[in-house]
Amino acid sequence: MAGLEVKNISKTFHIQARPTEGVLSHVISAIEGRGNTWELRVLNDISFSCKPGEVFGIIGSNGCGKSTLLRIIAGIYRQDKGIVHAPGRVVYLSGFNIGLQNKLTMRENIYLVGSIMGLRKREVHRYFDDIVRFSGLKDFLDTKIYQFSSGMVARLGFSSIISFVNHKKPDVVLLDEVLGAGGDAEFKREALAKMEEFMRSGAAVIMVSHDMKPIQKYCSRVILLRDGKIAAEGRPEEVIEEYEGTAA
């Protein structure tokens, strides 16, 4: 099966300089010939590919366009130019607490997150016991989660999302600053093992992270984004050295 291909992607945002100003200020700006928006080119002619089973890294400083690029691949944002060829199912993950509602019980939250992730009730039911077992929160099934500690919420979120994403058997996985989970040291270890298993499932994985350790450990190739362009591309250690060299 063909992997993910990103060809010549460009994206410009029109930033409102003074978003709170009213009609009168707009009129005055127009009369004076001052525009109230400016263009920010976030991505400029970005191309790369990722084979099935490969883990590909994207690094760069804040605001360099990493998340924008992932959102374009996921179909959340629209590119101005270029083509994304993402065969099969694409899953974008930017956190594990998506959809959790404080005033619902753990049981209700599992079903809610399942439906948000596109599963039917009977499909959620199939994974229910595994989610509860992995989270280690069996005794709190009918407790509203505002009474949970942040670690417990992290356990619930991770266990639910990872099971539902696994169910979807994605062909492309986009990990936006997510690797592992919160919770105590033991759960973190288990969660990381689960993520590693997930990354070995044969999908093309794109990983964005500010933490260079997982980039070095899991990625076979990495690109460095700077000023909307690919500033470096190659093996993790080379690209990371380039990034840290310029950052310093």
């Binding site: 996921a74 959809g99 948000i116 596109g118």
Partner: peptide, 10 residues
Amino acid sequence: AGFIRSINNI
């Protein structure tokens, strides 16, 4: 907004 920017299958 939170959902829309973080989930691609909705």
